[in-house]
């Protein structure tokens, strides 16, 4: 079992990180807004973590204090939140695919900036980021509670006025407006919350990856997070979490299958070198066979309903 945790410990951390990034994209999606800006905030948070821990905090040898990491996450989250408000107010007037495109442009502009600034280390980026933990698995001490907290937060959000307002905007923005909901306010709110989460994950991820550069948080990442949310299911916060975890684990699962000696060489070869072919195929099949995503609220609603309905039926 130790071997298992040593091998897959960091995969688990990546799964948790990606689950939160899936959530950060899901938040504006709750209001029907397709924003692909999360990787931009993730990158910003990462640079904040990287710059603070290599240039601002001078820690002596030994482990980097966890409290500093938490502080970086706070700063990363706040900075992302502020940027999100600034970008969100004009951008969220756009709808559908236009908002998606504007946020793609935002991510690209940030990427080009980070390639050119001195503080971000240009193309080489920032390396030698100090480690707060001696084993990757221990990142779960921070990432795990953060994910649980975000999930609890989402659980609550879906049940209070703000959450219902978001759903109302998703279903019909005009009607929601007529009911006295301020769509812009709620849309920017969801966008900003998502950005704060992505920024915090970024700051932590900079330590986890040991290095940070302009290759983090690109258009590819935008699409990956969207895939998490849509394959997992975009009608409940459980969807993006499950989607992110499955899709992050999938290439590693194929890597593992490719390592099984009993399989014929050609099959192993396909699992190893053609692993992404299978990955792509599963994404296509996923969208076709799970158009609502793997996790839909119906999964538990139906169960509740059948329980409630059955006694009535027996009377007939």
């Amino acid at each position: 079992m130790t071997d298992f945790f040593n091998t897959y410990g960091n995969l688990m951390v990546l799964m948790v990180f990606n689950a939160m990034l899936g959530l950060s994209l899901y938040l504006p999606l709750m209001a029907g807004q397709l924003s692909l800006a999360s990787p931009g905030f993730y990158a910003l948070g990462g640079y904040i973590g990287a710059v603070f821990s290599t240039k601002v905090f001078q820690s002596s040898d030994g482990a980097f204090p966890v409290s500093y990491v938490l502080l970086e996450m706070l700063v990363g989250g706040l900075a992302s939140g502020v940027l999100a408000i600034v970008v969100g107010i004009p951008a969220l007037r756009l709808r559908g695919i236009y908002l998606a495109l504007a946020t793609i442009a935002f991510v690209e502009i940030l990427r080009v900036l980070s390639l050119n600034l001195t503080i971000t280390g240009g193309a080489i980026g920032i390396f030698g980021i100090p480690q707060p933990f001696n084993r990757p698995l221990k990142y779960l001490y921070i990432a795990g509670p953060l994910l649980l907290f975000s999930m609890f937060f989402m659980y609550r959000l879906e049940r209070i006025r703000a959450g219902r307002a978001l759903t109302a905007i998703r279903e019909d923005e005009l009607a929601a407006g007529a009911m006295g909901i301020n769509p812009t306010y709620y849309k920017v709110l969801a966008f900003t919350l998502g950005a704060i989460l992505a920024g915090m994950v970024g700051a932590l991820s900079a330590h986890f990856l040991n290095t940070w550069n302009a290759r983090q948080g690109t258009f590819d990442a935008s699409i990956t997070y969207l895939t998490f949310a849509l394959i997992g299911g975009s009608r409940t916060f459980v969807g993006p979490v499950v989607g992110a975890m499955l899709l992050t684990a999938l290439p590693e699962l194929l890597r593992f299958l490719g390592g099984i000696d009993q399989l014929p060489q050609s099959v192993r070869d396909l699992f190893l070198n053609g692993r992404l072919i299978i990955f792509g195929l599963l994404i296509v099949l996923g969208t076709i066979f799970f158009p609502q995503g793997i996790i839909t609220p119906r999964l538990w609603e139906r169960r509740r309903r059948t329980k409630a309905v059955r006694p009535a039926e027996s009377n007939l």
Binding site: D3, L209, E252, L272, R275
Partner: peptide, 19 residues
């Protein structure tokens, strides 16, 4: 295979080292 990114390199290293 590390693919072209950082996370891929980490995963490949961990698999080689531990598994």
């Amino acid at each position: 295979d590390t693919a072209g990114d950082e996370a891929g390199a980490i995963n490949a290293f961990q698999t080689l080292i531990n598994q």
